[in-house]
C-alpha cells in the first residue's frame, strides 16, 4: 500500500477528537478479553472472586478474627486495593487485627508452571503439525502454481477448473466420508492425517493466489534462465521463490494461523492424549477439570505465545499482505 502524503482526509471543519474517542472505546472493549486473560492468570479463584477486575495489589493481609467464644483464628488473604494504600481499621467488629505486608507471592506464578505442564505437549504437537503442514502446503502449491502459470499446457484448462470448482464446494459434507477414508488408510489417531488433510485442503487457495502472482512476474527472467539451460525446478528455485518472497510469507502466515486454529478435524481424528493438538487439548481440559480459572487462563495465554512471536516479527508483512491481497482479489 502506498500511503500518499496527505495533510488530511475528511473535513477541515470537523474536529478529530470525537473519532479518537470512539475508536479507543472500540479498541478497549476489543482488548478487554486479552487483559482479563492476562490478569486472571495470576490469581486463584478466591482472589478472583474478591477482585475480578483489577490485578491483585502486591500485599497480603493476615486477618485475625475473634469468635464469640474467645478463640482466635488467623487467615491469610490477598489485600483489596482500598487496603493497599490506607490502613483504616476494619469495620467488621469480629475482626480483631489486620496486618498488611508486602508480598509478591500473591501472584500465582505457579499457575503458569501448571499451565505449561498442562498444555506444553499439545503445543509441541501443534507446532509440528502447523510447521510441517505449512511447509508442504506451500511447496506443493508453488509447484502447482508454476505449472499453471508458466505455459498453457494441454489439459491445463480442465485441471484449472477442477481446482476452482473446489473453491465453491462447501467442505461441510465431506467430514463424515473423510473420517471413514482415513480409517481405511489407517491414519486415524495420527498427526500425519492432520498434516495431509491440511495440505490437501490448502492447495486450491494457495495455487489460486500464487498462479496470479507468478504470471505477473517478468517473462524475460524465465526466458533468460531457460537460455542458460535451467530446468523447471531450477527456475522455480532461482526465479520464482526469490521474486515472490512477500506473497509466500503472507500465505505461510495465513496457512499457519489456519492450522493453529483448527480443531474440528483433530477432534474427530485424535484419540490418544499424547497426540492431542492444542484444539482438542483445550476442549479436553475444558471438560476435565474443576476450574481453577487462573490456571486455565495461564494455559490459554501460553497457547497464544507462538502467535505472539510470529506477529512481533511479521506484523508489517501481515498487515500489508492482507491489504494488498484484498485490493487485488
Amino acid at each position: 500500500m502506498s500511503t500518499a502524503p496527505k495533510e488530511f482526509v475528511g473535513s477541515h471543519k470537523q474536529k478529530d477528537w470525537p473519532k479518537h474517542i470512539v475508536i479507543w472505546a472500540f479498541i478497549i472493549i476489543e482488548l478487554f478479553p486479552l487483559y482479563m486473560m492476562f490478569q486472571v492468570s495470576f490469581k486463584d479463584n478466591a482472589s478472583f472472586l474478591r477482585n475480578p477486575w483489577l490485578p491483585t495489589p502486591p500485599f497480603s493481609v493476615v486477618e485475625t478474627r475473634q469468635a464469640a467464644d474467645g478463640t482466635e483464628t488467623a487467615k491469610t488473604r490477598v489485600a483489596d486495593w482500598s487496603e493497599a494504600f490506607s490502613s483504616a481499621k476494619p469495620s467488621d467488629p469480629s475482626v480483631k487485627s489486620v496486618e498488611k505486608s508486602f508480598d509478591l507471592s500473591v501472584y500465582k506464578v505457579k499457575n503458569w508452571n501448571f499451565g505449561l505442564k498442562l498444555i506444553g505437549p499439545y503445543i509441541a504437537n501443534t507446532v509440528f503439525v502447523a510447521v510441517t503442514g505449512t511447509f508442504f502446503t506451500l511447496v506443493l502449491a508453488i509447484l502447482g502454481a508454476y505449472f499453471f502459470a508458466r505455459y498453457k499446457m494441454p489439459f491445463s484448462g480442465v485441471l484449472w477448473s477442477a481446482f476452482l470448482v473446489l473453491m465453491l464446494m462447501p467442505g461441510v459434507a465431506n467430514i463424515v466420508p473423510l473420517f471413514s477414508l482415513l480409517k481405511e488408510m489407517s491414519l486415524l489417531n495420527t498427526l500425519w492425517a492432520l498434516i495431509i488433510v491440511g495440505v490437501a485442503g490448502g492447495q486450491v487457495f494457495n495455487i489460486f493466489v500464487l498462479r496470479n502472482f507468478i504470471e505477473d512476474l517478468p517473462k524475460d527472467l524465465f526466458e533468460a534462465a531457460e537460455m542458460d539451460g535451467a530446468s523447471h525446478l531450477d527456475q522455480i528455485r532461482n526465479v520464482v521463490i526469490p521474486m515472490s518472497g512477500s506473497i509466500i510469507g503472507t500465505l505461510s502466515i495465513l496457512a499457519f494461523l489456519g492450522k493453529w486454529n483448527d480443531f474440528l478435524l483433530s477432534l474427530i481424528i485424535l484419540r490418544d492424549k499424547e497426540l492431542f493438538t492444542l484444539g482438542v487439548g483445550l476442549i479436553y481440559l475444558d471438560g476435565e477439570y474443576v476450574k481453577q480459572w487462573g490456571q486455565m487462563m495461564a494455559a490459554y495465554f501460553i497457547a497464544s505465545i507462538p502467535l505472539i512471536i510470529i506477529f512481533l516479527f511479521c506484523m508489517r508483512l501481515f498487515v500489508r499482505g492482507l491489504s494488498a491481497g484484498a485490493v487485488k482479489g
Binding site: 479498541i27 476489543e30 482488548l31 478479553p33 486479552l34 486473560m37 494461523l257 493453529w260 486454529n261 480443531f263 492444542l278 484444539g279 483445550l282 476442549i283 490459554y300 497457547a303 497464544s304 502467535l307 505472539i308 506477529f311 506484523m315 501481515f318 498487515v319
Partner: peptide, 12 residues
C-alpha cells in the same frame, strides 16, 4: 491495535 487481538487463537 486492531491486529493485536488476533494473537489469541480463535479457540482460546
Amino acid at each position: 491495535m486492531l491486529v493485536v487481538p488476533m494473537i489469541v487463537p480463535s479457540l482460546v
